[in-house]
Design a protein around this nucleic acid. Structure first.
Lengths: 152, 152
DNA sequence: TTCTTTGCAAATCGTTTGCAGCATG
DNA sequence: CATGCTGCAAACGATTTGCAAAGAA
């Protein structure tokens, strides 16, 4: 799991500027295992920074995601969720209350597990983001091509 | 893999009405391993049914998805993709050209595989959709609650 | 001082909805 | 003949963008 200090250091190393807004956004994200959306983080930070713009939250999170410092995914509710935990793990998504939590144990067995951590599992979606052979070749050839906007 | 006849039969059994539009939509989907979006299928059917509405395509696909006859997922490009193959398998998504294909072999190993079917894998997202303990209990108690709109 | 970040407002765009008419079962 | 489907237009809503001012390095 990322710590705020670690994130700040990495962003600086990458040449990014660390503003007070970003520090607070990093804090809010790192202390949150609920896989929040940008809107949720923004709302949660309103008490501390009433003038913080939603645009700024999106920019901060997307920068991190593109740098590979956090994971971005869509659970199917039409919103983008951010996860500060970059280690491989599954997400448990309740189709009724829409809450998301990390799956505690290793997964990926072939037959769909009937139950995981008390969750009754109904469906699994496994997405592997990467480069197809063609695109890998073209990127190796130095061709800029269509820019790969993050991973997810 | 679903056949068109199988789908038609299941929809009828479920009490749904099978219109010529839906048959063509099912055909277009079942003969497509590219995990098309509703818009793509709609565009592809324009030659056969110039007056087919995009709304109709969405309705047909979402009905099937809610009945569990096909899979719905968002690859991260902001669009909803439909997969007629309901068997558990991973999707290979190129972050550069955005193309999607099915992973041929079983996956879910804990360490991220460096390469799958020629794809250089950069990140994995595994989503388990289901019912959390609270919601499972409340549904068992007969409480209608928030309706679980499909799975993905 | 330079170049990124901020933040407002407006645009974007995939998807959903309201509703009247039609067709399936 | 009743209910679900079609399709148009309009609504919706999360995310992005343009641009001028502010601030980090």
């Amino acid at each position: 799991m990322r710590s705020v200090e670690e994130l700040v250091e990495r962003v600086r190393a990458r040449g990014g500027k660390v503003t007070p807004q970003r520090v607070l956004i990093y804090q809010a994200l790192c202390g949150d295992t609920s896989h929040p959306t940008a809107e949720l983080l923004h709302a949660r930070l309103q008490g501390l920074l009433p003038h913080l713009s939603l645009t700024t939250v999106y920019a901060a999170l997307n920068d991190l995601a593109e740098a590979g410092e956090l994971r971005r995914f869509q659970s199917g509710d039409g919103q983008v969720h951010y996860d500060p935990d970059t280690r491989p793990h599954a997400e448990l998504i309740c189709v009724r209350c829409r809450r998301i939590q990390d799956a505690p144990a290793p997964h990926g067995q072939q037959p769909l597990p009937a139950e995981v951590a008390g969750f009754r599992v109904l469906a699994r979606t496994e997405l592997l983001h990467g480069l197809c052979p063609d695109c890998a070749r073209e990127m190796a050839a130095g061709e800029p091509g269509m820019e790969a906007s993050g991973v997810g």
